[in-house]
Design a protein around this nucleic acid. Structure first.
Length: 573
RNA sequence: GAUUUCGUAGCUCAGCUGGUAGAGCAUAACACUUUUAAUGUUGGGGUCCUGGGUUCGAAUCCCAGCGAGAUCACCA
C-alpha cells in the first residue's frame, strides 16, 4: 500500500479545504431528520403522489449528470437509489449561485453524503425523481468509490467483484453492491426468527463463557490465550455444550445460546476460524422429540425468510416442511454402498475403507472409520432434509446409549443439500458412563487424535448431582444461512471473514527526512521515487539518487531548486 | 499444509513470440435547463505486488517471497 495519495484523493482533500473556506462544515454535528426513503417513494409515489410533496432524504451521491445549470444525480440511501433533479436557480434563489456552481458542481464528489429537501415528480422520460429545493452536505468522502455502472435493464458493467477487496472492505462492497445487503438482512431474519420460536416455547436465552479453562463439548483444536492476573492458560471455546448442560443441572428446563465458536483449523469456503452456532437444551425430552422440534423450527425460519417453506439452493429446490426422512447411519451406508457395516469390527472396517478407496490412518478408531465411509459415500446424496440417526458409540462421547440397539447412541444429524446442518442427542446424563466415555477419549488422544475430547471434572461433578433426561441440539448458523441465501461460500454470509493481514504502509514523517538535510519540498519527490523510509534512501546509490532527482524534477515539471550534489551526498553520511 | 491460477491507473480490464504501457468508466477544464451506461471537445493520472536472476533490453521468461481465488487435506 502506497503512502502517497492518488491524484483523486488529493483533489478531494483540496475540495474539503475549499468547502471550509466557504464556511461549509464538511462534517456537521447536527442531526438531519429524514422523512422519506428511496424505495418507499418509488413504490408508492404513483398511487399517492400527494404525500410526497415535501420530502427530506439523505444518502450518498452515486452518479451525476450535469447539464449546465441543471443536473441529475442519483442519491443512494439505505433502501436504494433515487434520481434527484437540481436546478441552479432553485437551490440558489438569490444572486449568489455558489452553492450550485461551486459547491455542487466542483466541490462535491461521488460518495459524499448529502441531505436534500424537495418534492417528488415525474420527469419527461417518466422517472420518479426528487426536485431538490435545499441541499446540505452531511459528510465528505475522501476516497473514490469503485464505480459500478448499470444500464436500464439492470445489466452491470465494471462490477466490483474482487473477493479480496470485497471481504477486506465490506463497507465498500455493500455500498457499491447493495444487492449483497439482502444476504445479511436474511441472516438477521434467520437468527431472529429462530430466537422468536425458542422464546415462544418458553426457553431462555443465556450466555456462557467464551474463555474456558477446559475446551470441551466438541472435537477440534482450540485457540489458546493467557490471563495475566490469574496467570493461567485459557481456551476460546470450541463449543458451549458442557456449560449449557450445567444450566440444565441448575434447574432450567430450556436454555439456548447463539454465539461465536472458535476452532483453530483450516479455512476454506465452508470454514471460518470463528463461526456462529446455536445450541439448545430442553429437559425431559429425547432425540425423537427433538426431530419434530427441528422440523417446526426450520419451517418457521424458512417462512420468515422466504414467505414459503421452500428455498432454491443452486439446482435444488429444498422443502423444509416436516416430517423429514429418517435413516439410521448403518442403513444409510447400506443404501448407498450396499455394504452392511453394522456388525463389523475395526479390522473389517479398515478392509472396507481400502476396498472403497477411502484413505484412513492408524489413529482412527471404529467410529471414525464409519464416519469416513459415511462422509465419502453417503453425505452428498442427502439433498432434501434427512435425519441420519443412531451413531456408533465411539464417535459420540456425550450422547446417551441407545435405548434398544447395542453399540449405538441416541443421536441424529440433519443433512440438507449434502451438508450437515444440525446435530442432536438424547444427552448422556449418567455420570459414571460419562466419565468412562471421556476416559476412552483420552485413550484416543494418546493414540494421536488431536481432536479427542478433554476430561472436564467440573462437568462430571455437575452430572453427579443429577441432570434430568435432556435433549440437546446444535445448529451451525453460518451454514444454515448459506442454505437460506443460496450462497456457496461462508465468506459471503460473514460481514468480516478472516483474512491474512494486509501489508502495512510504512509510516514516516517528512520531518525525518528534513532532519537528515532533505529540503522539505523534495520529500514528496523522494516518496514518489519509492523512498518511504530513511533506511531505504540510505541503502540506495547516492549518485543515482542525485541523477534521478533531476529526472523527477523535469518529469514532474517541478519549479523548485535542485539541491547541490554535496547536499544530496550529505544525506547518505 | 499441498497443488494450481491470478496480482498492470481510483475501479473493471487489454497488453501476442521480451523492445521502457493502453481502453472504458472515474477524475480535471470548457459547452449544454428533463438527462439516465447523458453527450461533445481537450487534458492529467502508473514503484506494471515485492525482491532476486537471465538478457543489450523484462509488465512479459526463470527463482523466491507476500496477498487472493479454486481444488485437495483437516474440521463444522
Amino acid at each position: 500500500m502506497s503512502i502517497a495519495l492518488s491524484e483523486q484523493e488529493i483533489l478531494r482533500r483540496e475540495s474539503l479545504q475549499q468547502l471550509r473556506d466557504l464556511g461549509i462544515n464538511p462534517y456537521p454535528a447536527e442531526a438531519f431528520d429524514v422523512t422519506a426513503f428511496a424505495q418507499d417513494i418509488k413504490e408508492n409515489f404513483e398511487s399517492s403522489p400527494d404525500i410526497y410533496q415535501h420530502v427530506v432524504l439523505a444518502g450518498r451521491i452515486m452518479s451525476r449528470r450535469i447539464m449546465g445549470s441543471a443536473s441529475f444525480a442519483e442519491l443512494q440511501d439505505s433502501t436504494g437509489r433515487i434520481q434527484v433533479y437540481l436546478k441552479r436557480d432553485d437551490i440558489c434563489p438569490g444572486e449568489d449561485k455558489t452553492l450550485y456552481n461551486t459547491v455542487f458542481k466542483k466541490l462535491l464528489d461521488l460518495g459524499d453524503y448529502v441531505g436534500i429537501k424537495g418534492y417528488v415528480f415525474l420527469t419527461q422520460t417518466g422517472e420518479i425523481s426528487v426536485h431538490v429545493q435545499e441541499m446540505t452536505l452531511l459528510s465528505k468522502s475522501l476516497k473514490p468509490l469503485p464505480v459500478v455502472r448499470r444500464d436500464e435493464e439492470g445489466n452491470i458493467f465494471d462490477a466490483f467483484t474482487d473477493p479480496e477487496l470485497r471481504y477486506r472492505q465490506r463497507y465498500v462492497d455493500l455500498t457499491v453492491n447493495p444487492e449483497f445487503k439482502q444476504i445479511f438482512i436474511n441472516r438477521s431474519k434467520v437468527i431472529s426468527s429462530m430466537r422468536d420460536y425458542f422464546n415462544s416455547e418458553g426457553w431462555m436465552e443465556v450466555e456462557t463463557p467464551i474463555l474456558q479453562p477446559v475446551h470441551g463439548g466438541a472435537a477440534a483444536r482450540p485457540f489458546t490465550t493467557h490471563h495475566n492476573t490469574l496467570d493461567m492458560k485459557l481456551y476460546l471455546r470450541i463449543a458451549n455444550e458442557l456449560y449449557l448442560k450445567r444450566l440444565i443441572v441448575a434447574g432450567f428446563d430450556g436454555v439456548y445460546e447463539f454465539g461465536k465458536m472458535f476452532r483453530n483449523e483450516g479455512m476454506d469456503r465452508t470454514h471460518n476460524p470463528e463461526f456462529t452456532s446455536v445450541e439448545i437444551y430442553v429437559a425431559y425430552k429425547d432425540y425423537i422429540w427433538m426431530m419434530a422440534m427441528v422440523e417446526a423450527c426450520l419451517e418457521h425460519v424458512t417462512r420468515a425468510v422466504h414467505g414459503i417453506p421452500v428455498v432454491q439452493v443452486g439446482e435444488n429446490e429444498i422443502n423444509f416442511e416436516g416430517p423429514y426422512t429418517k435413516l439410521s447411519m448403518y442403513d444409510s451406508i447400506l443404501k448407498y454402498t450396499g455394504i452392511d457395516v453394522s456388525a463389523m469390527d475395526e479390522a473389517g472396517l479398515r478392509k472396507i475403507c481400502a476396498d472403497l478407496g477411502i484413505e484412513v490412518d492408524d489413529t482412527m478408531g471404529k467410529g471414525k472409520l464409519i464416519d469416513e465411509i459415511f462422509s465419502e459415500k453417503v453425505e452428498a446424496n442427502l439433498i432434501q432434509p434427512t435425519y441420519i440417526t443412531d451413531y456408533p458409540i465411539e464417535m459420540t462421547p456425550l450422547a446417551k446409549k441407545h435405548r434398544t440397539k447395542d453399540g449405538l447412541v441416541e443421536r441424529f444429524e440433519l443433512f440438507v443439500n449434502g451438508k450437515e446442518i444440525a446435530n442432536a442427542y438424547s444427552e448422556l446424563n449418567d455420570p459414571i458412563d460419562q466419565r468412562q466415555r471421556l476416559e476412552e477419549q483420552l485413550v484416543l488422544a494418546g493414540r494421536g487424535d488431536e481432536e479427542a475430547m478433554a476430561m472436564d471434572d467440573d462437568f462430571l461433578r455437575a452430572l453427579e448431582y443429577g441432570m434430568p433426561p435432556t435433549s440437546g441440539l446444535g445448529i451451525g448458523i453460518d451454514r444454515l444461512v448459506m442454505l437460506m441465501t443460496n450462497q456457496h461460500t461462508i465468506q459471503e454470509v460473514l460481514f468480516f471473514p478472516q483474512m491474512r493481514p494486509e501489508k502495512k504502509a510504512r509510516v514516516v514523517t517528512a520531518e525525518d527526512f528534513v532532519k537528515i538535510g532533505v529540503p522539505a519540498e523534495w520529500v514528496p519527490v523522494l516518496n514518489k521515487m519509492g523512498f518511504n523510509t530513511i533506511e531505504e534512501l540510505k541503502a540506495a546509490n547516492p549518485n543515482k539518487v542525485f541523477n534521478d532527482l533531476g529526472g523527477m524534477r523535469k518529469k514532474l515539471k517541478l519549479d523548485i531548486t535542485m539541491p547541490a550534489k554535496e547536499i544530496v551526498l550529505a544525506w547518505f553520511v
